[in-house]
Design a protein around this nucleic acid. Sequence first.
DNA 1: ATCAGTATTGCTAAGCGTTTGCAATTAGAT
DNA 2: ATCTAATTGCAAACGCTTAGCAATACTGAT
Lengths: 132, 132
Amino acid sequence: MHTQLNRRMTKQRHIIIEELRKVTSHPTADQLYEMVRKRLPRISLSTVYRNLETLSAEGMILRLDVAGAQKRFDATVENHYHIRCNHCGRVDDVHMEPINEIEEIARRRSKYQSVSHSIEFSGICPDCFGRG
Amino acid sequence: MHTQLNRRMTKQRHIIIEELRKVTSHPTADQLYEMVRKRLPRISLSTVYRNLETLSAEGMILRLDVAGAQKRFDATVENHYHIRCNHCGRVDDVHMEPINEIEEIARRRSKYQSVSHSIEFSGICPDCFGRG
DNA sequence: ATCAGTATTGCTAAGCGTTTGCAATTAGAT
DNA sequence: ATCTAATTGCAAACGCTTAGCAATACTGAT
Ligand SMILES: [Mn+2]
Ligand SMILES: [Mn+2]
Ligand SMILES: [Zn+2]
Ligand SMILES: [Zn+2]
């Protein structure tokens, strides 16, 4: 049996999803707020936060918990890695197969159960090492 | 030529390092504050934060920027991975060799330079799946 | 041992990203 | 068209961390 969710498709929610799907830039909540605001000037930042939260909880979108930085959001829900620029902070996809073997190693070494992993790459993006 | 640092060894700084070295629990700033407070009741939380910041900047200790959670600190500065319990939040070491090969893969796929990586494992710790 | 100069402290207030409480609104089922 | 619970906008609160500042106390030089 499946828990009833009773979700409604408000215009706010609809446009938030739509705007997120337009970009590959992994925007933060407030960046997305500015994008959405162009089409819905009266939307509140809380509404953006709330929807990003519920949508990611449902698996409709992906929430990236970047270490020591703002959360970012991603319309691509397939499991993939990211790389962050140490200079300008932008986040890009890294197209490589997830290395799930390490989870088994970690499970044995740590005695933890249900081990999962996340990798965060960082470096200098092409734009930043061009301009110094 | 080496930049002059002019660091002083205050009793606060000394005891912060000492208390951090006593544990393997990767305490947060406020947890360490409570530990230090037993020996220096008049120390302020700011002082703990400031020292953890400067000590980690110097490489004396390690700052763990946990995704979506409080920063944690580690007296073991050698590069190693960590695993976090999804249930109680505790952080343990994972003793395995760093897999630096993935950085080269990420570099090629992403076009970023000076690529580094961090892995964060998560799961259920032995204490939690016992009582879970 | 004393001194001077500045790194560091404790206190407090501010910062930042995010969450929450609540009355008003509205989607969507009947 | 009516009803009701989900959702909204606004504002205020939140949790963690940083910053401003006058008072203190290391430390290298005298
Ligand atoms: Mn992505
Ligand atoms: Mn460790
Ligand atoms: Zn960049
Ligand atoms: Zn646990």
